[in-house]
C-alpha cells in the first residue's frame, strides 16, 4: 500500500526531470557536436531528450525528399521544353479531380501535339496525395516542398495554379529530389545505352543482311528506330549507369520493378533479362 500522494510525487518527478533535462541536453552538446549538426536536425533526432522546439521562421526542419505538398511541372533546362506530354494520366489518377489539362493542337492538322496548352491545379481542392507524380510516365510532374503558400483575401485567383505558376526548372527538381534525380539519370543512361546497343545491333544486322543480299533497301529509313530492339542489349549497362549506381541506395523511390537496378553492382556479367523500362511505358 502506497502512501497517499506518492503517485503524484512520482509524476511530479517526471516533470522535474523533463525540466532539468532541457538544460543538460544542451550542455552535452557544448563543445561536442554544436556546429556540426544544425540545431533543428539535432532537436528532431530521436536520441534528443531535451528541448524539441524548432524556431520556425529562423530555422527550418529539413523536409524529407518524399515530402509532398503541391505538385509542380518540370521543365527541362537543357531544351527549355516542358516534360509534360499532356497524356492526361495525372488528370485521371487525381482523386479529387483537381487537374485540368488542355492539349495543344497542331494549328494545321488539328492533331494533338504532345505538350499541354493549359494546365491547372486547383490547390484549394488538391489533397497532396502525390498520385499525379507517382503515375506520370514522363517524370513531368513532381511534388513540391514549398509549404509556405498563403493567400490573402483572394483565393480563387491566387490559389488556382496555372501552367506558368506550376512550371519549375529541372534543376529545382534535382535540388529537392536528389534520389529521384539520380534514378532518372540512371534510367536515362540505361535507355541511351540500350538505344546505342540496339542501333549497333541493328547496324550489325543490317551489315550482315547487306552482305548476304547485295540488294540493300531499307537500312537508313528504319534505323531512326521507334523501338529499341531488346536482344542482348538490355544487359549492357553503360559506364555512366554504373557510376551513378552507388548514389542510388537500394531503392529508387516510386518505381515498380527494381529487379534491374541492384544488378548494377554486379553489372559486368550481363545476365539479367532485359525487362527494363522501369516506369510503365507510355505509348506515344
Amino acid at each position: 500500500m502506497n502512501l497517499p500522494g506518492t503517485g503524484i510525487l512520482k509524476g511530479l518527478g517526471v516533470t522535474l526531470k523533463h525540466f532539468i533535462v532541457t538544460y543538460t541536453e544542451d550542455f552535452k552538446y557544448i563543445g561536442k557536436k554544436a556546429g556540426v549538426e544544425p540545431r533543428p536536425l539535432r532537436r528532431s533526432n530521436p536520441s534528443n531528450h531535451g528541448i524539441v522546439t524548432v524556431q520556425y521562421p529562423d530555422e527550418h526542419l529539413p523536409v524529407p525528399e518524399n515530402f509532398r505538398y503541391i505538385p509542380f511541372l518540370v521543365r527541362d533546362s537543357a531544351t527549355g521544353e516542358d516534360r509534360c506530354t499532356s497524356c492526361g494520366i495525372c488528370a485521371k489518377v487525381c482523386p479529387p479531380q483537381c487537374i485540368w489539362i488542355v492539349r495543344t493542337e497542331d494549328p494545321v492538322t488539328h492533331r494533338p501535339v504532345p505538350a499541354p496548352k493549359e494546365f491547372y491545379i486547383d490547390t484549394t481542392v488538391c489533397m497532396n496525395c502525390g498520385f499525379c507524380a507517382e503515375f506520370c510516365p514522363f517524370d513531368a510532374i513532381k511534388m513540391d516542398h514549398k509549404y509556405e503558400i498563403t493567400s490573402e483575401h483572394n483565393r480563387s485567383q491566387e490559389l488556382l495554379f496555372d501552367k506558368d505558376r506550376l512550371t519549375m526548372p529541372d534543376t529545382y527538381h534535382a535540388s529537392i529530389h536528389p534520389l529521384d534525380w539520380a534514378r532518372e539519370l540512371q534510367e536515362k543512361a540505361a535507355e541511351e545505352a540500350k538505344k546505342k546497343a540496339a542501333a549497333e545491333a541493328k547496324a550489325a544486322a543490317d551489315a550482315r543482311k547487306a552482305a548476304a543480299s547485295a540488294a540493300s533497301k531499307p537500312a537508313s529509313a528504319t534505323a531512326g528506330g521507334a523501338k529499341p530492339a531488346p536482344p542482348a542489349a538490355g544487359g549492357a549497362k553503360s559506364p555512366a549507369g554504373q557510376q551513378s549506381a552507388p548514389n542510388v541506395p537500394s531503392k529508387p523511390p516510386a518505381q515498380p520493378p527494381p529487379a534491374a537496378k541492384p544488378p548494377a553492382q554486379q553489372a559486368p556479367p550481363p545476365a539479367t533479362s532485359p525487362q527494363d523500362p522501369p516506369k510503365p511505358s507510355a505509348g506515344s
Binding site: K92, Q97, W100
Partner: peptide, 15 residues
C-alpha cells in the same frame, strides 16, 4: 464515375 471527362483533353478550368 471518375475520371471526369471534363478534365482532359479539353480541360479548361471551371470551378
Amino acid at each position: 464515375n471518375k475520371p471526369y471527362d471534363s478534365r482532359w483533353p479539353a480541360g479548361h478550368h471551371k470551378l
